[in-house]
Design a protein around this nucleic acid. Structure first.
Lengths: 202, 202
DNA sequence: AGTTAATCTAATCAAATGATTAATTTATTT
DNA sequence: AAATAAATTAATCATTTGATTAGATTAACT
């Protein structure tokens, strides 16, 4: 398997962040030992505290990065007043599939850590992202009978949930890596079509 | 908030299991201290090892229980040769919503732990659950152009994903507990209708 | 070159944590 | 009632783990 690269050229600080990003995202905060990070970064354990003070501080930095990566992706799309509802949906699905194929552990990481400490959410003020957004307006207009959140959760679920079940699908032998990628590529077209059909249901 | 009841009447062994079920499911294996479990069960820490040998062993017991609860729910439905595709979908959604409203932490718990140790999955042989199932046959027949797994993942995603995002939705203030329940009750009817529409898309 | 600051290392600490032990209490059996 | 087994407790152990320290090495500056 592709071992994460401690980037021979990168600065020590960046090597630690790279390693932390990888280990935290894969194992979560509680299961991560600072020694794991130090080892993967190829540095002395004390340097972790020298550069980042504590495990918590380092985690906070990584978490902020990852939350921005995860939630920041939709912010511009959701609020774009010039695009149609259908093209917004296409963009959301396509962007997320591409980004999550590169970062398959991200959803489970975000959701798990946020459950343990939901303050993280307010801390990085990712809320008020949907409130009064252009997307929500368009959803209300297209299908006034159903709460827009139902659609938002559905579209995101159709896109993100496969990445959450990926470990199960692969462990069960139902799917190998190549098939998974193909499945997600197909979803880029399927989900928008499905969404259109769902919006017509009364 | 409703403190979990250490069941004054229950046996010590059962009190420990109750507490373990609760704490493990809420915090995950790594973040759980055996002392947390002992305290919540209202028993001496040593009794945990007296009855269950080790944290790992106790966790294994709880994990097996929870995986059965989670995956066992669909097994009979998925293989029922007498029910229509549409009614299978209705049942799956309805069963899961009801069960998960009682156990909202379950999906995130299962997915998180399974990611850390996907052997758990094979260990409890939950695989081969879908392979050649009646449901998969019916999906192939109804919509041969699309891999049945696409639909299975979608239907489960539409049902389960909201529970995974629940901590976020509530932390963001987008939804309170009552609204969440109402939303999920509405989904019992919406998801089957959506699924029907999705199956028609070509 | 000499001085100062930054970076890094090995060793160690203190607290947390899973587990065990020896002794005590309670229940069961004879 | 006496003897035996089961259940429970307080104290303690051994490891792990996050963090610190003092000292060495390297880089930057004058």
């Amino acid at each position: 398997m592709a071992k994460s690269k401690p980037s021979k050229t990168a600065s020590t600080e960046e090597k630690i962040k790279e390693a932390a990003r990888h280990v935290f995202t894969k194992k979560g905060f509680a299961a991560t030992r600072t020694r794991d990070i130090a080892e993967e970064a190829g540095i002395n354990l004390a340097l972790l505290n020298y550069y980042f003070r504590s495990k918590e501080k380092l985690f906070g930095i990584i978490m902020e990065e990852r939350m921005m990566q995860f939630f920041g992706l939709i912010t511009p799309v959701v609020n774009d007043a010039s695009s149609s509802l259908d093209s917004k949906i296409e963009m959301i699905v396509s962007y997320y599939v591409d980004m999550l194929l590169e970062n398959p552990d991200l959803p489970l990481f975000i959701m798990s850590e946020l459950r343990h400490d939901s303050d993280l959410f307010n801390k990085f003020q990712v809320n008020r992202l949907l409130q009064n957004s252009h997307l929500v307006m368009q959803l209300k207009e297209r299908q006034p009978a159903i709460h827009p959140l139902q659609f938002v959760v559905s579209i995101l679920g159709l896109t993100i949930f496969p990445f959450i079940t990926k470990p199960i699908l692969q462990a069960s032998g139902a799917l190998n890596q190549h098939m998974f990628v193909a499945m997600m590529e197909e979803r880029k077209k399927l989900v928008p079509k499905w969404a259109k059909a769902m919006l017509k249901v009364k």
